[in-house]
Amino acid sequence: MALKEQNSCTICHDDGISNSAVTWCTECEVLLCRGCENPHSKSRLSKEHKTMSAENYQKLPTFMQEISSQCRDYKKKYELYCPFHACPCCVRCITDKHQKCQEMKPLSDILKQVKSSASVQLFQKDLKDVKEILDKAITYLQTRISTSNVQKTKSR
Rank of each mutant, 00 (worst) to 15 (best):
K59H: 05
E37Y: 00
K42R: 06
A54T: 00
Q113R: 03
C28T: 13
C12K: 14
Q121C: 00
S20H: 12
S155I: 09
S43V: 01
S155N: 07
A2F: 12
N7T: 10
A118E: 11
R92Q: 04
N19P: 07
Y57D: 03
E27R: 14
N38K: 11
V150M: 11
R92T: 07
Y140M: 15
D14I: 13
V91K: 08
Q58H: 05
P83A: 00
C28M: 12
C101D: 14
K136R: 15
K75Q: 05
R44Y: 00
N38D: 00
A54W: 00
M104H: 06
S119T: 13
K136T: 15
C9T: 10
V91L: 04
E48H: 07
C89F: 04
C93I: 04
P61A: 03
P61L: 01
I133T: 15
A118N: 12
C28Y: 12
Y81Q: 01
T23E: 14
S46T: 09
K100L: 08
I67L: 08
Q113N: 12
S68A: 01
K128H: 10
L32R: 08
A54L: 00
I110E: 11
A86F: 00
K97D: 09
Q121Y: 12
N149V: 11
L127Q: 14
C36P: 06
A2G: 13
Y81N: 06
E29S: 04
C90N: 02
T147Q: 15
R34Q: 11
C101M: 07
M52G: 04
E27Y: 06
E66M: 03
C9D: 12
N56P: 02
R144I: 14
